[in-house]
Structures are given as structure tokens and as C-alpha cells.
């Protein structure tokens, strides 16, 4: 019977103990050899547009004339939303973003609606903002530089960045439910991830 060879091999106590010892020694040695200090994991310090990494810094011109810089709001949670006026899900989630901005700005959540102006028209974007009566800061990424920096491949894309500037969640596509926005904002306010 074909089955007999393997069970007989592993059922043999001496061989089995030898196998377990071999695995334990080699596996343990490999684990020890590949041990690294926790600080060597790249998360949180290397700037890159993904979860666990430092959010790449940028400064953007605001639609009301001033400028908005990510490093200037370190210490607050940031919800960075890339949008365009021609994108229906972007339009659909904007009222929820505005409400979260109004409700949570005092608690330390900054919501920024970053218009990908290179793919949009500034007048259409401003008309949409006026239509909704938006009070949240609107950034105008005229050259597409920030869009490239954040490797935005679909609209809307939303980055949730914690008080230390680390990206906690990336949501590609939408519209996001308001509950999702609020839950992620709450997570940002809870402080650094364990």
C-alpha cells in the first residue's frame, strides 16, 4: 500500500524527534539571523504615499488665496481628499467631508479638498464649491505635482494622516459613507497605531 511509507517514517519516534529538533534549530537560527531592530522597519519615516509611511510633504495654493502646507499642521489629523468637479463620486462625498470638517476641526481634524486642477477647470471647481457653500480649505494642484507625489490613480482618493504625519488609511474610490469618514477620523484622534 502506498500509504505505508510515510506514516511509518514519521511515526518512528527517533526520526520524528530528530526532525523536530532540526526544524527548531534551523528555524530558530534563521529567525535569530533575520532579527532586526524595530526601528529598521521603514514605516513612519520614509515618505511614500502608502499606509504606514510618512505622508509626503507639500504646500498647495488655496482657492481663497493663501497656502496650505502639510508640515504646518503636524499635530493634527489630516483627511486629504483628491477630487475633481467632473467626478460624480467626488461630488457625492463632498457634503460629508464638509460636515466632518465643521464638526471635527476643533478636535484636531483638518479636512483638505485637493482639486486636481490639471484635470479639471478652476472655474468649474469653484462653481461647485460655491454651489455647496464649502468652507473647508480647497487646494488647487495646478501642475499635478501633488497628484504625482501621492500616485493618485483614481478619483476620488482619500488619505487619512495621523498627528505624526503617518498615513493610516488610503481609500481609493468613493463615495465614502459619512460613517467611514467619521470612524477613520476617530482612529486618527486615538493617536498612533499600536
Amino acid at each position: 500500500m502506498r500509504t505505508s511509507a510515510f506514516p511509518a517514517w514519521i511515526a518512528h519516534r527517533g526520526r520524528w524527534i530528530a526532525l523536530m529538533t532540526f526544524v527548531l534549530v534551523i528555524g530558530g537560527a534563521w529567525t535569530a539571523v533575520s532579527a532586526v531592530p524595530a526601528s529598521s522597519m521603514t514605516g513612519g519615516r520614509v515618505p511614500s504615499p502608502r499606509e504606514g509611511f510618512l505622508a509626503p510633504d507639500f504646500t498647495v495654493e488655496r482657492s481663497d488665496g493663501g497656502s496650505w502646507g502639510l508640515s504646518e499642521v503636524r499635530g493634527d489629523g489630516v483627511i486629504l481628499n483628491f477630487w475633481a468637479s467632473w467626478c460624480p463620486p467626488c461630488r457625492a462625498e463632498m457634503p460629508a467631508l464638509e460636515r466632518v470638517h465643521n464638526d471635527l476641526a476643533e478636535d484636531g481634524i483638518q479636512v483638505v479638498a485637493l482639486n486636481v486642477t490639471r484635470q479639471d477647470s478652476e472655474s468649474a471647481a469653484m462653481a461647485f464649491a460655491a454651489e455647496l457653500g464649502l468652507s473647508l480649505p480647497i487646494g488647487l494642484d495646478r501642475t499635478g505635482e501633488i497628484e504625482r507625489l501621492y500616485q493618485v490613480r483614481a478619483l476620488p482618493t482619500t488619505f487619512f494622516i495621523d498627528a505624526e504625519g503617518v498615513i493610516r488609511t488610503v481609500v481609493i474610490g468613493g463615495p465614502m459613507r459619512e460613517a467611514v469618514l467619521r470612524a477613520e477620523a476617530e482612529a486618527l484622534l486615538e493617536g498612533p497605531s499600536p
Binding site: 511509518a8 514519521i10 511515526a11 527548531l24 528555524g27 532579527a35 524595530a38 522597519m41
Partner: peptide
């Protein structure tokens, strides 16, 4: 990797323990 005990990779420690448990299971079944 998630790092535990000041340097060990959690996935390696867990994998090694599950691997040993699976080998023990094979021995017991046989």
C-alpha cells in the same frame, strides 16, 4: 514585519510554532 521582543519578526516566531505543531500532528496521526 511586525517586530516583537525587541527584534524578532512575529510572523517567523508564529510560523515556526505552527510548523512544529503540524509536524507533531503528523506524528500523532501516523
Amino acid at each position: 514585519s511586525t517586530i516583537i521582543f525587541g527584534g524578532l519578526r512575529l510572523a517567523q516566531v508564529a510560523s515556526l510554532m505552527i510548523l512544529l505543531a503540524a509536524l507533531a500532528g503528523l506524528h500523532i496521526l501516523a
